[in-house]
Amino acid sequence: MARMKFICDTERCIECNSCATACKNEHEVPWGVNRRRVVTINDGIIGQEKSVSVACMHCSDAPCMAVCPVDCFYRTDEGVVLHNKDACIGCGYCSYACPFGAPQFPSNGTFGLRGKMDKCTFCAGGPEENGSQEEFEKYGRNRLSEGKLPACAEMCSTKALLGGDGDVVADIFRTRVITRGKGSEVWGWGTAYGNKAQQDSVPQELAK
Rank of each mutant, 00 (worst) to 15 (best):
F6H: 03
V39A: 05
H83C: 10
R37M: 13
F173M: 14
C13T: 02
P30L: 13
N17A: 15
G109H: 12
R12S: 07
G79N: 10
R37Q: 14
K148D: 07
G32S: 11
T10Y: 01
N195F: 02
C56R: 04
L149D: 09
Y139I: 15
H27G: 12
C56S: 09
F73V: 03
A192Y: 01
R180V: 06
C23G: 07
A66V: 11
S107D: 13
H27W: 03
A97H: 04
I14A: 10
V169I: 14
D86L: 14
G147H: 11
E154A: 14
D77V: 11
E128P: 03
V81T: 12
G125H: 03
D200Y: 01
G188A: 06
S51L: 02
T121D: 05
V38G: 01
R114W: 05
T21S: 10
G188Q: 00
G109E: 08
R174F: 03
A87M: 09
P103R: 02
G164L: 07
D77W: 05
P30W: 09
E28Q: 15
G190F: 03
H58F: 06
N130E: 11
G183V: 14
A62R: 02
W31F: 14
G101D: 07
S107Y: 03
L144H: 08
V202Q: 02
I14V: 15
R176V: 01
R180T: 03
G125L: 08
F105M: 05
E205T: 12
V81H: 03
C68G: 03
R141S: 11
G166S: 14
S157R: 08
H27I: 13
A151S: 15
Q204Y: 00
T158C: 09
A97M: 11
I46E: 11
N17S: 14
D61L: 07
T10F: 01
S18W: 01
F122T: 08
C23S: 09
A97F: 09
M1K: 05
A62W: 00
Q133H: 09
G44M: 09
K159Y: 08
C91T: 02
T121G: 08
L82M: 09
G92S: 08
V52K: 00
T40F: 01
S184A: 15
A153R: 02
A22W: 00
D200F: 03
D77M: 13
K182F: 14
P99I: 11
V70R: 02
S201G: 02
S51Y: 01
A197D: 09
G109M: 09
N34V: 10
Q104S: 10
C91L: 10
V52G: 00
G109C: 10
D165P: 10
G194Q: 05
C123L: 08
K5C: 08
Y93A: 15
G79T: 13
G32Y: 07
D43W: 04
G190A: 09
I41P: 00
I45F: 01
V29D: 02
F136K: 11
A97P: 03
Q133A: 15
G101L: 10
R36I: 15
G166M: 10
Q198D: 01
L206M: 01
P150M: 13
M1L: 08
K116E: 12
G131E: 10
G140Q: 05
T121Y: 06
Q133S: 14
E134R: 15
A207I: 00
K24G: 13
A66L: 07
K208M: 04
D171L: 13
F122Q: 04
N142Q: 11
T191P: 00
P150C: 15
K148N: 12
